[in-house]
């Protein structure tokens, strides 16, 4: 506990060894899908990394499992659902939209909307008086100033 090395940083140091050539699918189209899906799934042991960029064993297993599902003919959503069924919402880097995550998705935009409406209402209420048109004297001075500029 007292050793204040940036221990966890180590985990981040290793993603260079993420997807190995041997893991890749033969079909480039499928492999592309696999990479795309892997990027949306969170590695369960290495915090804030997708399984695509993690070198953890379990991430590798999940990468292989994802490719297995793709080979078996699952579409992208089915693959993600398959992983989610086993590991829960936690693995989804994009949190699902439901009652408990509604504030996450709609909180800030909602506040923005409220602020804009409040400001619009206030702007209607307090209207700055129209400035009086320039007197001939002022117009002359303005013209002179602009000439000097």
């Amino acid at each position: 506990m007292k050793r204040l090395l940036l221990l966890l940083l180590l985990l981040l140091a290793l993603p260079a060894f993420a997807v190995e050539p041997s893991e890749q699918l033969k079909d480039p189209q499928q492999e592309k899908r696999a990479r795309e899906i892997s990027r949306q799934l969170r590695c369960v042991v290495c915090q804030n990394e997708s399984i695509d960029s993690s070198n953890a064993d379990i991430a590798r297993d999940l990468r292989l499992a994802v490719r297995e599902r793709i080979r078996a003919g699952d579409d992208d959503e089915a693959v993600i659902a398959w992983v989610r069924q086993r590991y829960g919402d936690f693995v989804l880097l994009q949190p699902p939209l439901n009652a408990s995550t509604a504030p996450l998705w709609f909180g800030p935009p909602g506040l923005l909307l409220i602020a804009i409406i409040a400001l619009a209402l206030r702007a209607r209420r307090v209207r700055p008086a129209e400035p009086a048109p320039l007197t001939p004297e002022e117009a002359r001075r303005l013209a002179a100033l602009e000439r000097d500029l």
């Binding site: 990027r39 949306q40 969170r42 804030n48 997708s50 829960g88 919402d89 936690f90 693995v91 989804l92 880097l93 994009q94 949190p95 699902p96 995550t101 996450l104 998705w105 800030p108 935009p109």
Partner: peptide, 12 residues
């Protein structure tokens, strides 16, 4: 347990 990752920020 939920995670908030890059896809969330891309959208919000």
């Amino acid at each position: 347990s939920v995670s908030v990752g890059p896809p969330y920020y891309l959208r919000s």
